[in-house]
Amino acid sequence: MAGRSVSTIANLLDMSVSSLYRVFESEQMPLTQYIWLTRLELCCRVLTDISQKEKSVSQIAFEWRFMHSTYFSRIFTKQFGKL
């Protein structure tokens, strides 16, 4: 499930990409921002999971499709206050 794209999510829900975007039109958070925040929250869960302690921060970030570890560190710290 790591880092699913909008089109992949739409396919899994058996709907078009435009329909998925329409679902989020009435929400305060745009779809892409929701996906991005969800990925960050899932990274946070993995980082605090004792059974995942052998994984590096960069490895976890890459698994969730954050391609630059410095960018990931910056946005993670901004969102959660620490890494």
Score class of each variant (00 low, 15 high):
M1V: 13
M1T: 10
M1Y: 07
G3Q: 03
R4L: 13
S5W: 00
V6F: 03
V6G: 00
S7F: 03
S7L: 04
S7P: 00
T8W: 05
T8F: 06
I9D: 00
A10G: 01
L12F: 08
L13T: 04
L13M: 15
L13I: 02
L13Y: 11
D14G: 13
D14P: 02
S16P: 00
V17F: 02
S18F: 03
S18G: 05
L20I: 03
Y21R: 13
R22D: 07
F24E: 03
E25Q: 13
E25S: 12
E25D: 11
E27Y: 12
E27K: 10
E27S: 09
M29N: 03
M29G: 01
P30E: 11
L31R: 05
L31E: 04
T32A: 09
T32C: 10
Q33G: 04
Q33T: 10
Y34V: 05
Y34G: 00
Y34N: 04
L37A: 08
T38A: 11
R39Q: 15
L40K: 06
E41W: 13
E41Y: 14
C43V: 15
R45W: 14
V46F: 12
V46A: 11
V46N: 10
L47W: 11
L47D: 07
D49W: 06
I50M: 09
Q52H: 10
Q52V: 09
K53I: 13
K53W: 06
E54I: 13
E54A: 08
S56D: 06
V57Y: 07
S58T: 10
Q59G: 08
Q59E: 14
Q59W: 07
I60C: 10
I60F: 07
A61L: 03
A61R: 00
F62L: 05
F62Y: 09
F62E: 06
R65N: 09
M67G: 02
H68T: 06
T70C: 05
S73W: 01
S73T: 15
S73V: 09
R74G: 01
R74K: 11
I75R: 01
T77D: 06
K78G: 00
Q79G: 02
Q79D: 01
F80Q: 00
F80Y: 13
F80A: 04
F80E: 01
G81N: 05
G81L: 03
L83D: 15
L83N: 15
L83V: 15
